[in-house]
Write a protein that binds this DNA or RNA. Structure first.
Length: 825
RNA sequence: ACCGAAAUGGUGAAAUUGGUAAACACAGUUGACUCAAAAUCAACCGAUAAAAAAUCAUGCCGGUUCGAAUCCGGCUUUCGGUACCA
């Protein structure tokens, strides 16, 4: 054993052992108690960044802990490999996205291995692999059969110059990020999943998710957005038509209505066009100016208010559908957005008129009630529950995604037959910019001598990440989407770990697809995951400069600062001033990530893992500063030294017993108790580490002269290595061998807690307060009762400076083992 | 604008059922070892004050309570999400 801690050597040796003996292979033994621990799989964007390290370290800590606690653990990994960045990179470098993605996966896989995450690599999945996406196409066809998907026109961002659909991220200040052209809105036909049909279930089943964070459940609740209200039928003044409008306000609130706002696609527009020939042009203008806020125009058509028979003007606006996900709303000034609209078009005066009507007539509640019931009888009012959640658009006009298995004829469509799956994405496509549409060879399909074309859209990549957790239970299964028996053994996921940014979209799609698969009888459980851990994001400083009207993002590691606190870089020997964009989550697109390789090289994976966990509580956002890392490195070196020194000591042969071990034995037991509870339930992993650090500080200079203290000290070290193993597995594994333990540390059981010892009598310090302010401290035994403590305080005369006589004491409050508070007049 | 969070020393943070504010670390200062540096070890380390006593300190304003970082009401700032980044 060499003198100095050499992380490079140790980590290499240990990782080799794990690989050689296939340590983390999943055992398919249905008799064992299972534990499914899953971290959200990464998008292979290039290299792992610190946010990934955080995510996968948390998962690894839990997986390793559960293995030591006799659980049969499934801890898989995969790649969410389809997506926009691959296309962008491919365009930029004139590459095939396959190649780019594969290269990234290879690199990132190496990084994960270097971090020592205990994955079963046999269970690895890659979503751009036909073996995987075949089953997504299969699933889609099932949904098609069950009529859970449909086609409808919807708005996309359209760049008229590039002639492509742009993602929201690619639109910068209403312009195309590549060519700076002002973007337009285009209505195109899209595939939808009937998410609304599951709204009620998605909402109600939140109550089963006891181990989900409250904030996540709350966000989902708001996202689903249930409201109870009424649907009112109103007559149109100018022609025979009845318009139905939902409101979650009370019936009489119609009196406050200033106008009715309808969408540009509303059914009534057909009728309006017959009367008002300007409408066509006005709608065109509206479509063009979709991005202007709260635009609208008066149709000169009115609805009749059933309460007072007054006319309510109907406006067509560009925010009805977009903001409210419906085709018609009552507009009042009680809503902030609507109020802006009202003020913009000076509709306010009409509101005053309405109010005057109200006050003149003095409508009584009785009269209103009668009218309400009458209308209800006539079915002009219906009670209705409304959900804000929208149906999910799953089609994308992109190349790098799963092809949608549909054949289009001139007037009809048919699904691809199961036999013909997978519909493969063409390799070496030269024109990914124009997606699959221009690939005539690929899209042409001949059936019974009739020409047809394949659907050239691909799926939203959120679809792949909505069912991979089930496929991970049997990633190579060829007969179906997954092996049902295996899936039902492993599912639900016991702990699912990912960033808080996924609280709504991903985690709702994930629950939705699970429920759909359950209804298809593929799965048993109501919900896909028992526990969710939402880690905070890793943030860092973000910088850019503008070149040719485009933002160029510069990594903070390259930025220099001058005396005037201005940021700059040198490029081609020129000094360029840089704009600070604040603190943002680490991402490839903003080039503010940190590649962990350099840190691993310098300090090792164990130090990095320890540091990322120790730096902040896991649910909190972490602003990346490398400063504290040396402390974690020092800690591991200290551990190394303790074991090294211990090995030099020979077992004392004397028969003297050290009688002062009682206190430290209590501390060791308490440490096991605390760390166990933290990993098991609370997950304040940073405090677990500080507790271990504190204990090591305590025992570091322990003298070992007696046989019993030698034996106890050995027990201390071995226990420490086990409880540190989930956090820093390499060094723990290595030192465990050096302590001459026979079994490998992976096969050891987690140390037991002695409940009896926890209750043992110890010395503690409590605070003496006067009116809630701490004035003195006193040492007592934890077994003392209130009276005994008061007596001791009087005996020591500790309160002499604070009150003159005992008559002034109004009350004495004692909080066990913490505080004794004298309440004084 | 809406929804969800966060704010505590020079810095990361601790105090998770309302009970000793700053544990554990980083940085810093001083000392030991060393020709020297690094590493290691030891001491100090919220502010005011020479020190003690004391007072003030958990983003801001107010409230409840014997007692508030924690609960309630009202703000400010920062971060995440807002349906095509993933």
């Amino acid at each position: 054993m060499k003198k100095n801690y050499n992380h490079k050597k140790i980590e290499k040796i240990v990782q080799k052992q794990w690989k050689k003996k296939n340590y983390f292979k999943t055992i398919e033994n249905y008799k064992l108690k299972k534990y499914y621990c899953l971290s959200m799989i990464p998008y292979p964007s290039g290299y792992l960044h610190i946010g990934h390290v955080r995510n996968y370290t948390i998962g690894d800590i839990i997986a390793r802990y559960k293995r030591l606690n006799n659980k049969n653990v499934l801890h898989p990994i995969g790649w969410d490999a389809f997506g926009l960045p691959a296309e962008n990179a491919a365009l930029k470098n004139n590459l095939d996205p396959h190649t780019w993605t594969k290269k990234n996966i290879k690199y990132m896989k190496k990084q994960l291995k270097k971090l020592g995450i205990s994955y079963d690599w046999n269970k690895e999945i890659t979503t751009c692999d036909p073996k995987y996406y075949k089953w997504e196409q299969w699933l889609f066809l099932k949904l098609y059969k069950k009529k859970l998907v449909y086609k409808k026109k919807s708005i996309v961002n359209w760049c008229p110059n590039d002639k492509t659909v742009l993602a929201n991220e690619q639109v910068i200040q209403n312009k195309c990020w590549r060519c700076n052209t002002i973007i337009k809105n285009k209505y195109i036909s899209q595939w939808f999943i009937k998410t609304k049909k599951y709204a009620k279930q998605l909402l109600n089943d939140l109550k089963y998710l006891n181990n989900w964070p409250e904030n996540v459940k709350n966000m989902q609740k708001q996202w689903i957005g249930k409201s109870k209200g009424i649907k009112i039928t109103l007559k149109i003044n100018e022609f025979k038509y009845k318009i139905k409008i939902y409101t979650n306000n009370k019936f009489k609130s119609i009196l406050k209505t200033i106008c009715i706002s309808i969408s540009k696609t509303h059914k009534i527009i057909k009728n309006i066009k017959k009367i008002n020939n300007k409408i066509k042009n006005l709608i065109k203008i509206l479509k063009k100016k979709q991005n202007k806020k709260y635009l609208g125009f008066n149709t000169k058509i009115n609805a009749i208010n059933p309460i007072n028979n007054k006319l309510i003007p109907i406006w067509i606006t560009n925010f009805t559908e977009e903001q409210y996900n419906t085709n018609e709303i009552f507009v009042t000034n009680e809503n902030k957005i609507q109020d802006i609209f009202i003020k913009k078009y000076k509709l306010q005066n009409k509101k005053k008129l309405n109010n005057k009507c109200l006050s003149k007539k003095k409508l009584k509640t009785n009269k209103l009630k009668k009218l309400f019931h009458l209308m209800k009888k006539q079915k002009l009012i219906k009670k209705k529950i409304n959900y804000k959640i929208k149906d999910w658009v799953i089609s994308r006009q992109r190349f790098w995604g799963v092809p949608i298995p549909i054949i289009k004829f001139k007037k009809s469509i048919i699904p691809v037959k199961n036999k013909e799956l997978p519909v493969l994405l063409p390799k070496n496509d030269n024109d990914i910019k124009n997606n699959l549409k221009k690939n005539v060879k690929w899209k042409t399909y001949i059936l019974n001598n009739k020409y047809a074309t394949r659907e050239t859209d691909t799926f939203d990549t959120f679809l792949e990440s909505s069912w991979y957790y089930a496929r991970c239970t049997s990633p190579n299964y060829k007969k179906s989407i997954f092996n049902k028996k295996k899936a039902n053994y492993w599912l639900p996921i016991d702990t699912y770990i990912g960033g808080i940014e996924h609280a709504t979209m991903h985690l709702i799609y994930f629950r939705l697809i699970h429920k759909i698969m359950k209804d298809m009888n593929l799965l048993k459980n109501k919900e896909p995951a028992k526990t969710i851990i939402c880690q905070g994001m890793v943030l860092s400083d973000t910088f850019y400069f503008i070149e040719k009207n485009k933002k160029k993002w510069i990594n903070f590691s390259n930025i220099k600062k001058n005396k005037k606190n201005k940021f700059f870089i040198f490029k081609d020997n020129k000094k360029i001033e840089i704009i600070y964009d604040g603190i943002n989550k680490m991402s490839k697109s903003k080039n503010n990530g940190v590649n962990p390789n350099e840190i691993i090289k310098k300090y090792g994976a164990d130090t990095l893992r320890l540091f990322i966990i120790f730096s902040a509580p896991i649910e909190k956002n972490l602003y990346w500063i490398e400063d504290g890392i040396n402390g974690c490195f020092k800690f591991i070196k200290k551990l190394w030294k303790i074991v090294l020194n211990f090995r030099k000591i020979k077992i004392p042969k004397n028969n003297i017993k050290n009688k002062n071990l009682k206190n430290i034995k209590y501390l060791l037991n308490k440490l096991i108790y605390d760390v166990t509870n933290i990993i098991k339930q609370k997950l304040y992993l940073n405090t677990a580490i500080s507790k271990i650090m504190k204990f090591i500080k305590h025992i570091k200079h322990h003298n070992i002269k007696e046989q019993n203290s030698y034996i106890f000290f050995k027990k201390c070290i071995n226990t420490l290595l086990i409880i540190l193993y989930p956090f820093i597995p390499h060094i723990s594994f290595y030192l465990w061998h050096k302590m001459k333990n026979k079994k490998n540390i992976d096969k050891i059981k987690w140390p037991k807690i002695s409940k009896k010892q926890l209750k043992q009598e110890i010395n503690i310090q409590i605070a003496i307060q006067i009116n809630g302010k701490t004035r003195k401290k006193i040492n007592i035994k934890n077994t003392y009762n209130k009276n005994k403590i008061i007596l001791k305080i009087y005996k020591l005369n500790l309160l002499k400076n604070y009150f003159v006589n005992k008559n002034k004491i109004k009350n004495i409050i004692y909080i066990k083992n913490k505080v004794i508070n004298f309440v004084i007049k």
